[in-house]
């Protein structure tokens, strides 16, 4: 039996799979961003029941493994009669996962806008929507940048879990190549390096944003 070795074409396959990791990350962050934003608003709402519902959602999502969200949406969707491709199940579950964490991050950012800002905008007869639109959210956005980018790193890494339901992203591609070449050490080090190449710059960007934010707020 002739085994393939881990060469250029295999590395090319990993690179094309990396593209799917990036696509899935973008789906998770945009979908999770929209849902998470709404939940963050609910979490900081004046309505008590909305706050409690949002807090419960966040607690549940942050208290269960990403793998379980994945299995539940994968089997849940097929149970509802929808035979969906793994990309949809993966995208849906990563969206749910990201929404639970982004909601909590952004709640913290909204609440860290100083109280006088709320009072000042209220005294200008702004409606609550106007307060959010013109006063609170622009400030919260700036505060949220470092931790949001930091969370993006977690999302990139956690997309690897979707390989377990057979979605071919970077980690799954690594497994497939390993099955063909049986050079696990070389293959998975290459996979890890590719993840690192994506995640490390994001981590550094997050740190740089953090430093810049602190430098500004001390003036």
């Amino acid at each position: 039996m002739i085994l393939r070795t881990f060469g250029f074409s295999e590395f090319g396959f990993l690179l094309s799979a990396l593209l799917w990791t990036v696509v899935l990350t973008i789906i998770a962050l945009s979908g999770g961003g929209v849902v998470g934003f709404l939940i963050a608003l609910a979490r900081t709402s004046t309505q008590k029941w909305l706050r409690i519902a949002a807090a419960t959602y966040i607690q549940i999502i942050q208290g269960i493994p990403v793998l379980m969200i994945l299995f539940l949406s994968y089997y849940g969707l097929s149970l509802a009669g929808l035979q969906l491709p793994p990309l949809v199940a993966a995208g849906a579950s990563m969206t749910i996962y990201a929404s639970g964490y982004l909601a909590e991050i952004w709640r913290g950012c909204i609440q860290s806008v100083p109280k006088p800002q709320w009072e000042a905008s209220e005294s200008l007869a702004m409606t609550r929507a106007q307060q959010y639109r013109y006063v609170i959210l622009p400030q919260a956005l700036r505060i949220s940048l470092p931790s949001t980018v930091g969370f993006a790193v977690q999302v990139v890494k956690n997309t690897s879990i979707t390989s377990i339901i057979g979605f071919v992203e970077l980690a799954r591609a690594g497994q497939l190549i390993n099955n063909a070449t049986f050079q696990p050490f070389r293959v998975f080090i290459a996979v890890a390096m590719l993840y690192f190449v994506v995640c490390y710059p994001l981590s550094q960007l997050s740190r740089w944003l953090e430093r810049r934010l602190h430098a500004r707020s001390h003036h």
């Binding site: 890494k157 390989s163 497994q175 390993n178 998975f188 890890a192 995640c199 981590s203």
Partner: peptide, 11 residues
């Protein structure tokens, strides 16, 4: 911190 736990397990 910049590589997935799953890949670490595989290695």
């Amino acid at each position: 911190r910049n590589t997935p736990f799953l890949v670490q397990l595989f290695i």
